[in-house]
Design a binder for these strands. Structure first.
Lengths: 114, 114
DNA sequence: TCTCTATTTAACCTGTGAGTTAATTGGTGA
DNA sequence: TCACCAATTAACTCACAGGTTAAATAGAGA
């Protein structure tokens, strides 16, 4: 369950955005993520669970480790929907992008001329 | 002064995102915005000042009224930068979009192959 | 089974975000 | 100048996000 509210709430923390950036190119174990921060492991763990319940990352146990990775269509999809709702400029461009990104985006409601 | 932190903090409130949506197509007076919400005018006023100090909207006095409007290149720019940092998928598409949107986006740092 | 390591959960503290009502500022117009 | 209206600022409350340390869970391996 990934609502816009949860997603934007999740993105409101710089530390959580930083976690997403770390996960951009490959999944990482919880420990490897925590190592990159000053704060305690439990704090990082909380951030991870917030990101997960926002649907932005997935989690998979691997032995005694836990692997985390991006659920990237989610992020792209939500940001895309938001831009459609809020960014006025070039409707034409927005359509092009949507076509390019095809599969990776949500069903899509195209808001026609207001 | 519009830092990513302030922008994402501003976007974390559903009410503030709703205000942005109202301002998408045209500027509105503070009162007209407040009328669309249940909460008190001072509450709306606070949201507006948060959005403004994040650089997402501008404000202009008009007689006894105050007009608010979107500072839309800001929003597009910040979301764009964030997507570059965090969304892995199609680097090619991201480049195309940037070219299309040319003027409206920030200087741009293209993160090459990690 | 016992121990070690990885990670999360529990319990707690503290700062601050979002709302309220009451007071203030700034501009209009008789 | 005075009354009125738009909007903000001030002062205050309440809930909750984000951090801490200590305890619990879960799997690996001797």
């Amino acid at each position: 369950m990934s609502s816009p509210d949860k997603v934007f709430e999740a993105l409101s923390s710089a530390n959580r955005r930083r976690i997403l950036a770390y996960l951009r190119d490959r999944p990482l174990h919880a420990g490897a993520i925590a190592d990159r921060f000053e704060m305690s492991k439990p704090a990082v763990s909380k951030h991870l669970s917030i990101l997960e319940s926002a649907g932005l990352i997935w989690r998979k146990r691997e032995g005694q480790f836990i692997l985390y990775g991006m659920e990237q269509e989610q992020l792209a999809g939500h940001l895309w929907t938001f831009m459609q709702e809020v960014c006025p400029p070039s409707r034409a461009i927005r359509r092009e992008v949507r076509d390019e990104m095809d599969g990776t985006l949500p069903p899509d409601t195209e808001p026609e001329q207001s």
